[in-house]
Amino acid sequence: EPEARKIVEKLINNGLSPEDVKRWAEKNNNPEVKKAAEEYQKR
């Protein structure tokens, strides 16, 4: 999901860690963003 990846990169560029992004995604019920954050961590 390229859109989710863009969101993850934007949040990380704004100073969030991938863990923060995953928590944000869970709080906002956004499994695509959570998955993208996990993939981002593996890179």
Rank of each mutant, 00 (worst) to 15 (best):
E39G: 04
R23I: 11
A36G: 02
K34Y: 14
Q41A: 10
N28P: 01
L11M: 14
V33S: 01
K42H: 09
N29E: 08
Q41L: 13
N14R: 13
P18N: 02
P31R: 07
N29S: 09
K42L: 07
K22F: 11
A4W: 11
L11K: 01
A4K: 02
L11I: 01
P18A: 12
V21K: 02
E39F: 01
W24K: 03
G15N: 03
I12H: 04
I7T: 06
P2I: 15
E38Y: 03
P31M: 12
N29F: 08
K27L: 14
E3D: 14
N29D: 10
N29P: 01
P2Y: 15
A25V: 00
R5S: 10
K10Y: 14
D20P: 00
Q41R: 06
E19N: 07
D20S: 05
K6V: 11
E26P: 01
E19Y: 00
D20V: 04
S17M: 04
I12K: 02
K35M: 08
P18Q: 04
E3L: 08
S17G: 05
K34V: 12
V21D: 03
K34R: 12
V8H: 01
E9D: 08
V33K: 00
N14P: 00
K6I: 11
E32R: 07
E26D: 12
D20T: 03
K10S: 12
K22V: 15
A37M: 11
K34C: 09
N13Y: 08
K22S: 06
Q41Y: 09
V21Q: 01
E19Q: 08
E1A: 13
P18Y: 14
N13Q: 14
N29H: 08
G15E: 06
R43E: 15
L16G: 02
P31A: 11
E1V: 12
A37R: 00
R5P: 06
N14Y: 08
E32M: 12
E9I: 13
W24C: 06
E1D: 13
I7A: 03
Q41W: 08
I7V: 08
N28K: 04
A4H: 05
E32G: 10
Y40I: 08
K35E: 08
E26Y: 00
N30C: 14
R23D: 13
